[in-house]
Each structure stands twice: as C-alpha cells, then as structure tokens.
Design a protein around this nucleic acid. Structure first.
Length: 378
RNA sequence: GUGGGUAUGGCGCAGUUGGCUAGCGCGCCAGAUUGUGGCUCUGGAGGCCGUGGGUUCGAGUCCCACUAUCCACC
C-alpha cells in the first residue's frame, strides 16, 4: 500500500505499508548484505539509528549460510532479529560486479561462488525461490546490469532479456506466494528499469515493465561509472514513465548529494554501501563536508566527529580516540564510524521528510547541498 | 678476551662477476571507492648504503682500520 502524502515539484513524501510495518519515504535502506551491517552493527543498533528498512542480498545469503537454512529458521526477519521491512536484492548486481566469475545465458547466469569457487546457476526462478525462502518483505527482480559504457546494441539485447526475465520472475513469485509453507505469502516483487545511459531504451523499458503492474519499480544500472550529471538527466527522463502511484527505488545510490538530487526527481527509496564501507575506512559524512579520520591532522583532535551530532559515537568519543582505534584496526573503530555515518544518512532522510511535510524541500536541498559539498573543516 | 657473522629510508630485507636516476614488503602521507569479497586500487614523502681511509675511469659491491651488534668458545 503506497500513499502519497505530499508533493513538491516531482519530489514526493509518501508512506509505504507492508506486512512488516509502514515505511515513511523518502527513505534510505541500510545495507546488510549478509544479514548484517558490516562493521559490527546489530539490528538493535539499527533501531537506535532510526533505520526503517534494511537491505540484504540474495546471492550472498544463498552462498552462505544458504537460503534453505534461513527458511528452516523461520525466515530472514527472525534469523537476524529484525521485525521491520527487509528488501532483498536479487543477485542481479552480482552478475555485474562479479563479472569475471560468470556467464550469462537466456535461462540465467552461471556463477562461480566467490567463497569456494563452486558452480552456481541463478535465473529468475532461482532468484525468486531463494528470496521466497528468505521471506523478505520486498524481493527484487533478477536483472542484468550492463556497464554504463556498454554498446547500445548490447544494452538493447540485455534489456530485452531482463524484460523476459521479469515476466518469469512475476510468474514464479505468484506461484511461490501461493504455496502452503511459504515464509511470507505477502512478499512483493519490484521490477527494475535498465538501459544504461540511453534514454530511449530506458523509457521504452519503463513503459513495458509498468504494464506488468508490480507493487514497485526501481532504476538500476546507474552510478556505475557514468558522470553524476548523466545519472541526473537519466532520472529526469525516465522517472515520469514509471508508475507515479507506486514506490520508486534508485538502486545503489549514493552520496548525500545524489540522494538529494534523486528525491528532487521523484525517487522514494535509496540504498548505498557508502555510509558503511566508507565508515569502515574512516571516511565520515558531516554537515561540514567529509572528515577523513585517518588523516594525520586528527591525531590530537579531541572533538567529536561532528559537533552537535546526536549519534552515540559523537556523544561519547573523540576523533583522536576513534582514529587510534582505526589505526590499530580495532573493530570498535569501524563500528563507531559506521554508526555515525548511518545516523547521518538516516537523519538526513528525516530532515528531507520534514522539509517535504512543511513544503520547504527546495530551500532545504539548497542549504544541504552547500553543507555536504563543503571542504573538510580544519 | 678469541673465532665467525651482520651493518642499505621508521621496521624487515634484495642488490647478480664493481657500471648509468639504489630497489622490494610493511609502515607513513594523500586520494579513489555508489543494488559491499572487512577489500582493492592510485599517487607521494623518506636513504650522503655504520665511520674513516685505500684500490679503480667508476665502490652498496673489493682491501685495511675503527665502531656497533649477534652467535660460538674461553
């Protein structure tokens, strides 16, 4: 159930209700690929951070511990002790990111496991079956994510195949939801728009998948190497062709700026590894720009990562101490940094929703863009 | 005290029969990273090759002395 509460230009303030609760959008989904936020952040921590919805990965959980295992343990919600919505990515992106380990065919993709090298086959049906076993709130379609600089002819063939795969995903998901022992009979399937940087392919594809009347749609294959401006212009072109009465999800994006630009163009859902991965590497987001905590200038800096930040890290620890932990490769260092970054992202989304509620998103976006693009404070 | 070994950037080491701007790993400094393999990648700084003499057109490489350090023996 998707309800539009308010709009400002193309930006939308909505509510998305699922069997696992309601999500207020625009929202950032915290990425926990293997049913865990990397950096020793637990599902209990996620609630403290204001996280509404978590994202996990089909391929990674299939390889380890195995989706059958998770099904036997009652599904992913129970497994990771998280009762709010969970979106599972389909494994499609791994077709792209683990490119050296795979072969794409009409029936699906042959992978070599990155864990033990064993051969794995995944097609639309397999991806749906795995996601059904996981019992996530939202399952993503199994797609191919062509490189942004792929030749147009290849992209066209790839997108056509992704469309055929989506039809198979939908049929399989309907079959699985009707089974007696299914973990989540209300599991939703989101379609994925592709087409690299070719607006005509994107738009044509958006129209075709919209006809399938799925509960939500995403835009994939962006932020994979093309310039930011290209991504924004693709959004300008394609978002209007996706159903406006359904959630729109921009996959894998992005920087705080990318998210603001996405909301501005009508996107509801985002996810990105940046806050967690960059957090692990001491790259911290603040309203005064990026703080690279490993830089030598922070060795004696007794201030918090961000003055006035409400996260538990900033309320308790100094830059100098956290820097030491990172240098010493203490797990606590990563944890504290990831907590700050996730807080920053979730808090920014809350600010965005408040601004939309109050009809002042445009001015909020302008001032936030200035903040996030500021140089490191001294 | 005697015999033997070793001395090369912060640490650990390579440096072929003496030959052009002395390398490597780690560390350090800086930067990348967008549906995550706790990675990976890209730059950069830093060495009068223990000290002093000698041989040679040319010495980190050969010779002598000294100093430091390690091992064995007394």
């Amino acid at each position: 159930m998707y309800k539009i509460l308010k709009t400002e230009g193309r930006a939308k303030r909505c509510e998305f209700t699922t069997v696992h609760g309601t999500v207020q959008t625009p929202v950032f989904m915290n990425v926990g690929t293997a049913a865990a936020i990397k950096g020793a952040v637990s599902s209990v921590d996620l609630k403290d951070l204001g996280c509404q919805i978590e994202l996990s990965n089909t391929y990674h959980l299939h390889v380890r511990p195995g989706d059958e295992v998770i099904k036997k343990l009652g599904g992913i919600h129970r497994f990771m002790a998280w009762d709010r919505p969970i979106l599972t990515d389909s494994g499609g992106f791994q077709v792209f990111s683990l490119a050296s380990l795979r072969k794409i065919k009409e029936e699906g993709v042959y992978f070599n496991s990155h864990v033990d090298g064993r051969k794995i086959f995944m097609g639309p049906e397999q991806s749906m079956q795995i996601q059904s076993n996981l019992g996530s709130t939202v399952a993503m379609a199994f797609d191919e994510c062509p490189p942004s600089l792929a030749e147009k002819q290849y992209v066209k063939e790839s997108v056509d195949r992704t469309t055929r795969w989506l039809v198979r995903c939908k049929a399989e998901m309907e079959r699985l939801c009707a089974l007696e022992d299914t973990v989540n009979p209300d599991q939703m399937l989101f379609g994925i728009n592709q087409g690299a940087v070719y607006p005509d392919i994107r738009i044509e594809h958006a129209k075709r998948i919209s006809d399938l009347d799925l509960p939500g749609y995403s835009i994939g294959g962006l932020a994979v190497g093309e310039p930011n401006e290209v991504m924004y212009s693709i959004l300008d072109e394609v978002v209007p062709y996706l159903p406006q009465n359904k959630p729109t999800y921009l996959m894998g994006v992005g920087t705080p700026r990318d998210i603001l630009e996405g909301v501005y163009r009508g996107v509801d859902f985002f996810d990105c590894v940046y806050p967690s991965r960059n957090g692990r590497h001491g790259h911290l987001y603040t309203d005064k720009g990026t703080v690279r905590l490993l830089n030598a200038k922070y060795e004696l800096d007794d201030r918090p990562i961000e003055e006035g930040c409400g996260c538990s890290t900033c309320r308790t620890y100094s830059r100098a101490y956290i820097r030491h932990l990172l240098k010493a490769k203490e797990m606590l260092g990563m944890r504290l940094c990831v907590i700050h970054n996730l807080y920053y992202y979730n808090n920014m989304m809350r600010e965005i929703r408040d601004a939309l509620d109050e009809g002042r998103f445009a001015s909020y976006m302008k001032s936030k863009l200035e903040k996030v693009s500021a140089d490191n404070e001294k």
